[in-house]
Every structure is written in structure tokens, then in C-alpha cells.
Amino acid sequence: MLLINCPHCGPREESEFSCGGEAHIARPLAENTLTDAAFADYLFLRDNPKGLFLERWRHAAGCRRWFNMARDTVTHEIIEIYPMGSLPKTKAGKVAHAASWRRETAAEAAAKPAKAKAPRAKKENG
């Protein structure tokens, strides 16, 4: 049973929330030119780590707002809760974000606007 600290409402029981699965999956903009395999990475393939997992949650029976959470899937410990559209700030969260295979996918590369060529662009969708 999780006690989740909603960034807007404070600590509430898990039963008030719904889980939206893996966070930081950006929709590819160039979806028409993407291969089926690359699009499957976005649509179906999911990170499923044993350890720290970055996921989306929604306070469904409260403020109904989405937020991101870094949670350990073995201990269920919640390391960090951070707003949608931003990246984790804790060291463990940053490592988990950078280590995900999704960072290397064509789908994710295609999710960034063409002009954003700068290395490690800070802006992310979701």
C-alpha cells in the first residue's frame, strides 16, 4: 500500500490515484516516416525495470492532475515526485532516465523538433 504525496493535495492513499505507466515516452512527430519497428518502440514496448522506475500517476479521486514519480519496483520506495514536463532531479532518478534504452530509439529522436540539435536538449514532452 503506497502513501503518495500529491504535489497539489499532500499525502493521500494509493487508492485515490491511478497509474499511467512509464513516463517520458515522447510521441514521435515524424510518425509517417518512422519504420513499423521504431513506431512499435513508442506504441507497445515498455521499460519494465527491476529497481528504480520513472512512471506517471494521476490523482484520479482528488485534483485529477498528472505528475511523475520515481519509484523502486522492488521496495516500492518513492524516491521523488516531480512535475509533468520535467526530468527527475535526484541523482538516482537522473541515472534511471539516462540509462533507459528508450533514450537511444529512433522514435524518441523523432519526437524532438528538427531544430533542437543542441546536445542534451532540456525540453522533453511528458
Partner: peptide
């Protein structure tokens, strides 16, 4: 249960 886990336990609700 609604969330990913490897803990072989779930939540009471």
C-alpha cells in the same frame, strides 16, 4: 494491481 512491481505483494484495496 495498477502499478509495476517485482515485490510479490500487492495493495489491500
Amino acid at each position: 494491481d495498477k502499478y509495476n512491481s517485482y515485490a510479490q505483494r500487492g495493495s489491500f484495496p
